[in-house]
């Protein structure tokens, strides 16, 4: 089994070594940004059995709701995996089921507290087992792959603007300044039950791959190419710090959360 190092809650850094000599490194950080009063993002990194599980949730829905929703989301996913990993079901099913439970918990919490009506959270969950990575996102939390000095976006935002773009109703240039670019079309807690529009994401990792997951506070102000420049080399904890600093230098209009997983292979 591996060893896991945990630093303080805000800035975690974890190193996991396996018997097979494979190594997974994870760095993460969340920042309120320069404008918002509260951080409605929440994240988690858990190492359970042979799995590394990374989650980010970005809460929505007013003053308290968003913060609560994102915490419920991350806690529910964690709890689901802790309880059900032993059942031996395929990881891809478990991710969807964990999100299904999180969805229900947020919804139930909101219906028990009328002031929290409309609360929800966009989210992304990544589960890594050996060189296999499974991921599922809802809303506009993203996952990027950095490989061979190139960056590739693995998730497609569930947003109004992305749909308009896909359907050819607006151009890419128009999408950047669309007045409704903050509308998400899918989120935890948003519906009575959770439905998924695409199959779960899967990736076979190779040595040196970096998987970067983040909330929209990062990419709203930093382009994909700039993310690549800041994240492709060096100590991943520094990269995370640098990305957040850069987003804040550009106004820090939203909460920013980043996790990077470095797959060091054999």
């Amino acid at each position: 089994m591996g060893i896991t190092l945990h630093l303080e809650r805000l800035t975690q850094f974890s190193l996991v070594l396996r018997e097979s000599r494979m190594a997974v490194y994870v760095a993460n950080m969340s920042h309120t940004g320069m404008v918002r009063a509260v951080n409605e993002d929440y994240y988690g990194y858990f190492h359970l059995a042979n799995y590394d599980i990374l989650v980010i949730a970005d809460g929505m829905g007013g003053h308290r709701g968003g913060k609560i929703a994102s915490k419920i989301a991350v806690d529910a996913v964690r709890e689901y995996f802790e309880t059900h990993l032993k059942d031996g079901r395929p990881i891809e099913s478990m991710i969807d089921e964990a999100f299904g439970v999180a969805n229900r918990m947020i919804r139930d919490f909101a219906s028990a507290n009328p002031g929290l009506y409309g609360m929800g959270a966009t989210a992304i969950c990544l589960v890594v087992e050996n060189n296999k990575a499974f991921y599922r996102h809802l809303g506009d939390c993203r996952l990027y792959l950095i490989r061979d000095e190139k960056i590739k976006r693995l998730t497609k935002d569930h947003t109004l603007v992305q749909k308009l773009l896909d359907d050819g109703i607006i151009t890419l240039a128009e999408s950047f300044f669309h007045p409704e670019r903050n509308i998400v079309s899918k989120a935890l807690g948003g519906r009575f039950y959770l439905e998924f529009d695409e199959p779960i994401g899967f990736l076979e990792m190779v040595n040196g791959d970096r998987l970067l997951m983040c909330s929209d506070g990062l990419f709203d102000s930093i382009s994909d190419e700039e993310i690549l420049e800041l994240a492709k080399h060096g100590d991943i904890q520094n990269c995370v710090q640098e990305l957040i600093n850069e987003a804040n230098r550009r106004g820090g209009n939203d909460n920013i959360t980043v996790q990077i997983l470095l797959y060091a292979g054999e």
Binding site: M60, G61, G62, G65, G118, M119, G120, G139, P179, E180, N182, I183, V184, S185, K186, A187, G189, G190, R191
Partner: peptide
Amino acid sequence: GGTRLTATG
């Protein structure tokens, strides 16, 4: 600003 400040839907 035309922004809707509430959550999805």
